[in-house]
Amino acid sequence: MTMNTFEVPQDVLVDVRNVKKYFPIKGGILKRTIGHLKAVDDISFHILKGETLGIVGESGSGKSTLGRVILRLLDPTAGSIYFNGTDISYLNRKEIRPHRRDMQIVFQDSFASLNSKMSVAELVEEPLLVQTKLSKSERREAAVEIIEKVGLRADDRLKYPHEFSGGQRQRISIARALITRPKFVICDEPVSALDVSIQAQVLNLMKDLQDDLGLTYLFIAHDLSVVKHISNRVAVMYLGRIVEIADKKSLYDNAYHPYTQALLTSIPVIDNNSDATPRRTKIKLTGDLPSPADPPSGCTFRTRCPLAHDRCSIERPELKEKDNGHVVACHLYT
């Protein structure tokens, strides 16, 4: 594996090239590998500095696995990940450590991701302990600053996670992620466990912090309206592959892939027009997501696609640029 030989455009922060993550499926008495679950199957994209790339997909589409591979919390099976121009895909534990402070993650369930036996101060200062040689008072100063920045009070630092509501706990998780001053933050369903009024507070906070600190986000979520609100560009995943990626406006106004169209029209929308304007016609999908361990041949979406034809079962469609920057993988457009 060569290191850093590609030339990366100046304004790209994260560049993902042909990344695959296969999990072995073991079976039989000898627990031999009898197959592979292709959680992430040949994915390439890049994220520009300061932008938010949204990733949407249903459960089992591989969106969380992708996030973990990019952060090297999981090792890629193949492909390369460039972070700020450096190939980090095959660095060992020691080599990756200096990069960790630049990339952080916020998880969905703040109950599970915050140690209940640690105070807020301990939780928020912990990354500094690992990553820096700051003194106790410097750490404390940094923690107070970030705690106030995420909208908590400085004296909240002595409390424990259970004393906070879900929205406030998510603020603690954000403070913990931001204290090392990362360039890049992966947000894995950060608001899906929250009530709508709290969800809006946290989304606004994340936008403010992005402007303030110049952050780049990879925002993983299943809620298409939330992703639309926060993202600049959006990628749609289905069974380990990106089926469509485009500018937010282009994707939501003019989706090409039948799966994206179905996702967009499946969301129940609030009808508060007093005039009887006709609704967008819903595209209903039948059946469930096939098992990623045994995906259909050709286009993996064809078993649920209302527009599938013969070619779809034989040949896998590749991502092709349809309009400027609007990329789609579907035989309808080739």
Partner: peptide
């Protein structure tokens, strides 16, 4: 998921 939600509703 949303596509399944629509089916169930």
């Amino acid at each position: 998921d949303v596509t399944i939600q629509a089916q169930i509703l």
